[in-house]
Simulated assay, not measured.
Amino acid sequence: MRISLDIEGVDDMIKRLERAGKDVEKATTKALRAGARVLAEGMKEEVPVSNIEHLHIRDDIKVRQTPKKERLPGVISYDIGPGKETAWRARFVHDGFVSRNGRFVRGNPFATRAFRLKREAITNAIIREYQKAVR
């Protein structure tokens, strides 16, 4: 599942960075990483946790830059979510599944809910990082 966010005013900040002679790509990378960290914290708050002793999805949520082979040229993006060890379980929790007896078990879309709840905080974190770069 991929989610994108359009923020008004970022283009103006990028133009100011270019005029000031700053490295726009470096500032963009830092800003997006700051927003990704806010979303990761929101996901950790929203994911359900069992009382079973194993690696929980909450403890495995990571922020990783999307590999170059998976992103468009010239685009900076991040993958936020569980690592390989718990990704299969997170998919069942998030999307739901059909049980052995044929009943559908509804999912708990924790990632989508975290994005909706943290959208403003993500935007603020990105803008704050751009403002630091402009100074």
Rank of each mutant, 00 (worst) to 15 (best):
E46K: 15
R135G: 06
G102S: 05
R128A: 14
R116E: 14
M43L: 04
I14V: 15
T86L: 01
F104M: 06
R128V: 01
D6L: 08
A31M: 08
A121H: 06
A90C: 06
Q65R: 15
Q65E: 15
A87W: 04
D79S: 14
A40L: 02
V47N: 09
T86S: 01
V47L: 12
V105S: 06
A111T: 11
R64E: 14
I61K: 05
V93N: 02
M1E: 03
E70A: 12
R116I: 09
K22D: 03
R89L: 15
P109C: 13
E8K: 09
M13P: 00
L5K: 11
T66E: 08
K15S: 11
E53M: 07
S99F: 01
A36V: 12
P82Q: 07
A31P: 07
V10Y: 02
R89H: 08
K69T: 02
G74F: 15
A36N: 08
H94F: 07
K68Y: 00
Y130E: 02
W88V: 04
F104L: 14
H94A: 09
I126Q: 04
N124E: 14
L5M: 15
E120S: 13
T86G: 02
R64D: 10
V24K: 07
N108Q: 14
K68S: 08
T123I: 13
R128Q: 14
G102K: 05
P82Y: 00
R128L: 07
R135Y: 03
V47G: 12
G107T: 07
L55E: 12
V98K: 14
K26G: 09
R33H: 13
G83V: 09
S99G: 10
S4W: 01
I80N: 05
E18D: 13
H54I: 11
